[in-house]
Design a binder for these strands. Structure first.
Lengths: 186, 186
DNA sequence: GAGCGGATCGAGGGGATGCTTC
DNA sequence: ACGAAGCATCCCCTCGATCCGC
């Protein structure tokens, strides 16, 4: 949750758009902004979804050429089930770490690419080139993420692995509950 | 002013829509919501649901010019793009401090050069040579300003960082509202 | 560079607070 | 002597990678 300040009249306007009791500011804004991007996306009429349906997320990234695309991808992400079965089996948290990252990558390559831009104070955490990781730290112990072109740093305690996972999942736009599950699976 | 809470991804999305230096959340939201109502208004098949309440208009920017010269300079600065999106994300106020200074530098190099002539009672605050700063104090912890040839002192509390920023922005000719926003971004 | 996992501890940075100076 | 302004000490927290256990 973030806190933002807005002017009173704008606040009143937004509050005036409430459709259900208990709707949060986020809900209302999503609806309003979503209505906009729908209108931008096509001139066709589409009010079939008004009211009943759960609203898809607003894209988390600033507009690219592929607005509508991104929207679809996100809503699909939100409903995909992770395959946790094999993961719990893996003997070490490092193994589970790699497996979970692999699933995130498979979920959506392009979102993963944006989400994995994360580094510590000195080390690079992700890269497609093993050497980049080796170069950024002394003994980062990079390992390949299965079924992907990426490498990750591995020489961290479990808490940090969890943090990295959390960051990527969150940056990819997963829902809080899912992020929690992913982190717990580590 | 009212304070509202919104979810992180929505926040990021909104922040990503920043177009000008000094834009507040209100400004951005007004633009986004306005774009929507424009589309609705121009449509023959206007949907009563959305149009039920008038969108408050964006207040005109108060460009109080006594001096035409100054006006021109200011307006050129005031329309340059300022990217606040990445800044809020930076983990420490020192990081944000450096990022903000970097943007000010990029905004106008020569104005920045004039504006950064500021010092404390003992310490030099800005310099193009790290050594100058080191020489002027005991532990000033100089750091390079990204994308610029300058260094700044870093070992100060946040209030002083804000003061320095304020001074530079003001000396560069930004408007009061914008200076305020820059300082708030710290 | 090859054994691997990862907890633990130390280095280093951030910046509030207290001390000094005017 | 008292207050304001500014410096830098020092504590805390984050992050790296050593080193031990398996």
């Amino acid at each position: 949750m973030k806190t933002i300040e807005i002017e009173d009249d704008l606040y009143l306007y937004i509050a005036g758009q409430t459709q259900h009791i208990g709707e949060s500011a986020s809900d209302i804004l999503r609806r309003l902004l979503d209505a906009q991007s729908q209108l931008n996306a096509s001139s066709e009429l589409n009010d079939a979804r008004v009211g009943s349906q759960a609203l898809p997320s607003v894209p988390a990234e600033p507009v690219m050429g592929e607005d509508v695309e991104a929207d679809k991808v996100i809503s699909s992400i939100q409903h995909v089930e992770f395959d946790f079965s094999g993961i719990a089996e893996a003997g070490s948290s490092t193994k589970r770490f790699l497996a979970l990252l692999s699933q995130l990558y498979c979920l959506d390559r392009s979102r993963f690419a944006k989400a994995c831009v994360i580094k510590g104070s000195k080390r690079e955490y992700f890269s497609q080139a093993k050497e980049t990781l080796l170069a950024s730290g002394k003994t980062s112990k990079p390992q390949a993420i299965p079924a992907s072109p990426y490498w990750v740093i591995t020489n961290t305690n479990t808490a940090r692995k969890r943090y990295i996972l959390q960051h990527v999942a969150s940056e990819m736009g997963l829902q809080a509950i899912q992020i929690e599950r992913v982190c717990e699976a580590l």
